[in-house]
Each structure stands twice: as C-alpha cells, then as structure tokens.
C-alpha cells in the first residue's frame, strides 16, 4: 500500500494519452508471440502428458483471470466460483448427452447458461458486502451442489453422470480439440480481461477498487460495472467447467462443485499477484511447479498451499509479480491506470 502511495503524484487526467510509448514495448510483444507459437504447435511436438498438463494450465489460468478480475479489480471476494464450474459441467451433460449436441459446442453454451444463472444470484449477492459476500457465494454454490445431489433421476444424483457421447470421438482427436478449446478459452480470459480493463468499464473498475465512494463521486455506476464483471467471471467458469469434463468424462456433483476449484484459484492469484493480469499467469506457473514438487504428499501439499497463502498475504500482499516489480515496473499488459490522487482514500480514515 505505502509503496504504491508514493507513486500517486498528481498526474494529468488519465484519459489523455495515458502511456508514453516506450522503446522496450516491443520485447513483451515478441515474447508473447513466441509463447503463442509454441502453444499452438504444442500438439505437434509435445507428448500426451505435456499436452494434458498444458490443458490443465489453460483452465486454471482462465479461472484465475476471471477470479482476479472479480476480487482484484471489482473488490468481490467470491469463494463460490465452483458453482459455475459445476453448472458448466452439467450443461455439458444436458446438452451433449440429453440433447445430443456436439460436446465442443456446449462450451460456449455452458458459458451462456452460467451467465443466465449468475444473474439471479447476483441479485442476492449484491446486497452483501465484503466478507459476507464471500461466504454467501459459497452458500449458493453449496445449495446448487446439494440440489444436484438431491436430484436422483435426471442429473444422476450424488453418483453423477457420464458423458457417453464423447465416445464418438477418437481419443487423440478429442484431446487435440480439447487442447485448442482450452487454449482459446485461456486467451479469451486473458485478453477479455485485458480489453475490459482498458475500456470505460476498466476505468470504473479501478475507481471501485481504490475506493467505492470515490468511484461514486466520479459518477461510476458501481452496481452495473460489478454485475458485468460477475457475469463475465461466471461465463468463464461455466465454459471451463464444460471443458474440464470433456476431458474427464465423468461428472460427479461433489467434484464438479468442489470448493477446491475456488481454493486453488485463490491460491494462484494470491501467490502470483492480485490486481494485475500478469499475476495470475505467473501464479498458475508457480502453482504447477509447486504441485509438481509436492506430488504425492496430498495433505502436506494442501497444508503448504494454505501456509503460503497466509505468508504471502502478510509479507507480499501483491504477490510474486508485485515483488518482482516493486522497483522497476515493467508490465506486460498495460492496463494499470492510476487515479488522480484526490480519489485515493485517506490512510487514517478509510
């Protein structure tokens, strides 16, 4: 907090040419291009296990970006995104299995379903603030999980359903298609957040993050902006849910609606750096490295993840990305606009 404060020198209004073009802006672009080429061509040179890991990486990245947009920018601490992961998974079951649609087509449909169901839940949730909002998102996720569990016939109850129609695809084809769908989803999440932040909504978001009252003072429609973000995050989680179970095939409510979807994602964002686009990317990489190191140590690994989250919050609340950039800010994604100093909350009162 205090480090950031020293940066808030009075600046010209941010609408007018917020960033000077810098010479080394090209480097991140080259880097980004190289990574993209490598990822697109991965199925041709990588082996199956690498491809599966990469796919997993994509969906965690997508979830992390969406959560970071919600929590890091819009101040909505959700621990209930697993509701939409599960809804996405069951959309796959219904559309692909019951209605016979192409499973890959269900990914965007799952996003839409998640968004539609997110709307009424936003009516309830937006009455609550802060920590209350957080637990309420969880209650909603639990309610959906139990409702699905209770519904024995249609959705298979606690034993879940298997998406048999996926059998129509050759395994390699299914994995390749899944891989590209995952890549597309991750890119949509990353660039969706990027463009959202650079739009007018983004400016409103940063105002909300810095101070909700300040945001109201500059005439930001807080509620509408938050709702856009909430629905966007739900859509990403829904699509991710469908994608995850295209690969895993068996949908069980306790797994699809597991709190771990939220827990891992929060861990990823916290360790990477909350409130930046780079943070979740770095966080997802670190998460995979850590998970690999702690492989086979089930309970220990969860315990260590929990400890790391606590320690990060205490000593590096801006995450590893924040630590790396403490002295020399080199954002890959230039979204971080700063509000004029007069909108900042006072240290004492806030």
């Amino acid at each position: 907090m205090s480090e950031n404060r020293s940066e808030i020198e009075p600046r010209p209004p941010m609408t007018a040419a917020p960033y000077a073009r810098e010479a080394h802006v090209a480097l991140p672009l080259v880097l980004l291009g190289a990574v993209l080429v490598a990822l697109v061509s991965l199925p041709f040179w990588g082996d199956g296990s690498l491809q599966r890991t990469a796919l997993e990486f994509f969906y965690f990245l997508a979830l992390a970006q969406a959560w970071n947009l919600m929590a890091g920018y819009a101040g909505m601490m959700s621990i209930g995104q697993q509701a939409f992961v599960g809804i996405g998974a069951y959309s796959l079951v219904v559309f692909a299995e019951d209605l016979g649609l192409n499973p890959f087509l269900t990914i965007p449909l799952a996003a839409v379903v998640a968004m539609i169901l997110a709307l009424p839940s936003s009516w309830l949730l937006f009455r609550l603030k802060g920590a209350y909002f957080a637990v309420a998102t969880w209650v909603i996720a639990e309610t959906v999980r139990l409702a699905v569990n209770a519904n024995i016939d249609w959705l298979g109850g606690g034993r879940g359903r298997t998406v048999r129609s996926l059998g129509q695809f050759d395994r390699h084809l299914r994995e390749d298609l899944g891989y590209y769908a995952g890549l597309a989803l991750a890119l949509i999440a990353v660039f969706g957040v990027f463009f959202l932040l650079r739009s007018k909504t983004g400016l409103a978001l940063q105002a909300i993050r810095d101070t909700e009252n300040g945001a109201r003072a500059v005439g930001v429609e807080t509620r509408r902006t938050k709702r856009i973000v909430y629905l966007f995050a739900a859509a990403i989680a829904g699509a991710t849910g469908a994608l995850i179970y295209i690969v895993q095939i068996n949908v069980r409510p306790d797994a699809a609606f597991s709190i771990n979807w939220a827990a891992y994602v929060i861990f990823i964002v916290v360790i990477g750096g909350i409130g930046t686009i780079e943070g979740p990317i770095l966080g997802t990489i670190l998460f995979f490295v850590l998970r690999d190191l702690l492989e086979g140590l089930e309970a220990w690994s969860m315990l260590i993840f929990g400890l790391i989250a606590i320690v990060m919050m205490l000593f590096a609340p801006k995450g590893i990305w924040g630590v790396m950039n403490a002295h020399r800010p080199v954002p890959l994604f230039r979204t971080a606009r700063k509000l004029p100093a007069r909108f900042k909350a006072d240290e004492g009162e806030a």
């Binding site: 929590a71 601490m77 309970a299 220990w300 315990l303 400890l307 606590i310």
Partner: peptide, 27 residues
C-alpha cells in the same frame, strides 16, 4: 497486521488457515 488494507487479506488468510487446520488434523 492487515487491518488497514481492507477485508480481503483477512478473508484470504483465514481461508488459508482453514486448509492448514484441515490438513494438519488429517496428518
């Protein structure tokens, strides 16, 4: 230690603590 940074740190810290306690008890 995190009071001045709003409610987010406390929520995340106690969420992390929740995993520490559960898995500590499991072990």
């Amino acid at each position: 230690r995190t009071l001045k940074d709003g409610m987010m740190p406390a929520v995340i810290i106690t969420f992390g603590l929740s995993f520490v306690i559960q898995n500590g008890l499991l072990l």
